[in-house]
């Protein structure tokens, strides 16, 4: 792999793993907790956010030399709001049932701090391609986070994944999982698992270093 591909890959993986918006930065929790009742909802929310994040980051990056710094935040919000409106229409055109399930949270993508944060911290300082790679990585990380929550909540709360029953008719649904507290419980469990795995890795690395 050449130097540049490595760097692009690094840029991409930044958002997917090291700075995962849900599990590491714990950002964007409003949609992460509210719409992750099922895997489909979680994935659609992730895709909608991917679209908005990538498009607005590319546009911000293209216009970065034009945007006066005094009004940059207002400009970013206008751009983000534009793409949120577009995604709102697109989802209505694809499926009204999905639109109802996601509810106000589609419009609320506009206040998702991940998007404004990326526009301000990265896209406004980098060329379009780099901004796009970074935005794609971030949104993939966000989508993975949402999916991890949505899948667990759907499996335990309804015994299904993507609407396919996994355990047969006798399954005992965990009522709490489809209620709002379930989102917090599952997020807490995931954070705990991540912390435990990270600690273990650290300890192993330290042992290796000591032995060497």
């Amino acid at each position: 792999m050449s130097q540049t591909t490595v760097r692009t890959w690094d840029e991409f993986m930044e958002g997917v793993w090291r700075q995962n918006p849900v599990f590491v930065m714990v950002l964007g929790l409003c949609p992460a907790l509210a719409v992750t009742v099922s895997a489909v909802n979680a994935l659609s929310m992730g895709l909608a956010t991917t679209f908005v994040l990538t498009c607005s980051c590319v546009l911000v990056s293209l216009l970065r030399k034009l945007i006066p710094k005094e009004v940059r935040i207002a400009t970013y919000i206008v751009i983000i709001a534009t793409f949120v409106t577009v995604v709102d229409y697109l989802i209505q055109a694809v499926s009204l049932a999905l639109y109802d399930a996601l509810g106000a949270f589609i419009q609320l993508i506009v206040v998702n701090c991940i998007i404004l944060g990326r526009a301000e911290a990265h896209a406004s300082k980098n060329p379009p391609f780099k901004a796009m790679v970074n935005a794609l990585g971030m949104s993939l990380g966000f989508t993975i986070g949402l999916f991890a929550l949505g899948a667990v909540r759907e499996i335990l709360g309804a015994g299904k994944l993507f609407g396919v029953a996994l355990f047969g008719a006798n399954f005992q649904p965990w009522v709490v999982m489809v209620l709002p507290p379930g989102g917090f419980f599952v997020l807490g469990m995931w954070l705990l698992v991540f912390a435990a795995v990270a600690r273990r890795k650290q300890r192993k690395l330290a042992e290796v270093a000591q032995n060497a």
């Binding site: 034009l66 006066p68 009004v71 207002a74 751009i79 534009t82 793409f83 577009v86």
Partner: peptide, 23 residues
Amino acid sequence: MVRTLGLISAICGLIIVAAYQGT
């Protein structure tokens, strides 16, 4: 500033109208 903001608003307006008509 006004010029740039105007340009950006115009771009955004175009995108929204296109999406509305398209869908």
